[in-house]
Nucleic acid binder design. Structure first.
Lengths: 210, 210
DNA sequence: CCTCTTACCTAACAGTCGTTAGCTTACAGG
DNA sequence: CCTGTAAGCTAACGACTGTTAGGTAAGAGG
């Protein structure tokens, strides 16, 4: 480009341009940048079109070929996050040696997601319409609990209701922050991980793990 | 008022001015306006200095004698809301005929606040430092639960931990929205109010009410 | 009646935001 | 090699934001 190269960067202004057919690659880069931007700032108001463009390494107008505006980006971010949460939960469930352990592992995986991405977790459930996304992980847990009842691991008489109660409680603990907040609350030290196990045992009526 | 009134408004531009010594009255009006603004829009990003001024019926610079900026207004809003929540809970507790009923009533009052002011409730717990505010209502519940144990209404062996579990679960249900969201979730109809009672009984180990 | 302080205002600034219009540059197909 | 188009750019707009500087009107004290 420059005859005798003082400027060695591939593109003089802006970022490295995507190759010919791969313009769609920017679409995913934008969502990823929005995710890390939200995770790092912790502030949903940082999700502006210009801010996301900046985080992507792109000028603002370059967003428009891929998204109609910031709302579409946020929608994509939320969908991306829900599928991440869902696979976290189902992976934990699948990797466990037993159904009871699976429920415990799934509960921990769920709450961990909330602890590790607090701003994103809040945004996911702030928007109305979270129900459609959450339903997959939800029915997964409900089915597991039903199987637990069948094989005697759970004494639940209403897996449908108990799944709801368990999820509500986990949702509550997930919106807390993970570090020593309990001490800040002057409650004395409370082991959060043990609390999750307690909730699973009491609300899903799972007998103590062997 | 006016001798021959074409202009009937007391002050030609702006709002009715406060009387001489009562300039501090605007301070509370600003907080009230911020509260209703957030409750009505449901969007924390509507809490701008100019927006709050508009809702108060005042021009933007008139805020500065009372608050250094929007952050101070939000802080005042949060403190106001926590004391409202606290009095809601303690009123419910005090009005109940028995300790067990009191815990149920307090739980319902707590969740109702979250349902009726969703954006405000979220903002209250989004800011770090909510712990200092919540601690009052919290210890109130813990003491009540301890008394329940003493008089046999609860079989809890660890009121401290069980208060934490109960609060976490209530916090979870409070961040849901009140209308038929459960149906939206395709869970089939779940009675939210009955769910609250379930949580109180199972987590605080309260025996069924007479 | 006069004055001075209180309570609030207007005017204006710099910065950020979303959005449109139009330009530049690299590369694939002929 | 030439050309067309894809990929991303610059420039600019109008609207909104926080914030400062300085004005105006009303009412209490003298």
């Amino acid at each position: 480009m420059e005859p005798h190269g003082v400027t060695s960067e591939p593109t003089p202004r802006g970022r490295a341009r995507n190759p010919r057919g791969a313009g769609a690659r920017l679409h995913d880069e934008i969502v990823d940048a929005a995710v890390t931007l939200l995770d790092e700032t912790g502030d949903p108001s940082s999700l502006t079109l210009r801010g996301v463009a900046r985080a992507t390494g792109v000028k603002a107008p370059s967003i428009y070929p891929h998204f109609d505006g910031i709302d579409e980006i946020v929608t994509a971010l939320i969908e991306h996050s829900f599928s991440q949460l869902e696979s976290d939960v189902s992976d934990a469930l699948a990797a466990a040696p037993s159904l009871g352990d699976g429920l415990h592992a799934a509960a921990h995986a769920y709450v961990r997601f909330g602890w590790e991405h607090p701003a994103r977790y809040r945004l996911m459930f702030a928007a109305s319409g979270y129900a459609e996304h959450a339903v997959n992980a939800y029915t997964l847990v409900e089915q597991t609990l039903t199987h637990c009842v069948a094989d005697g691991t759970s004494t639940s008489t209403d897996p449908h209701r108990d799944t709801f109660l368990l999820w509500v409680a986990l949702h509550g603990i997930a919106t807390l922050e993970k570090p020593g907040r309990a001490e800040l609350l002057r409650l004395g030290p409370i082991d959060r991980d043990a609390a999750i196990d307690d909730l699973v045992e009491r609300l899903a009526k799972i007998t103590h793990r062997p």
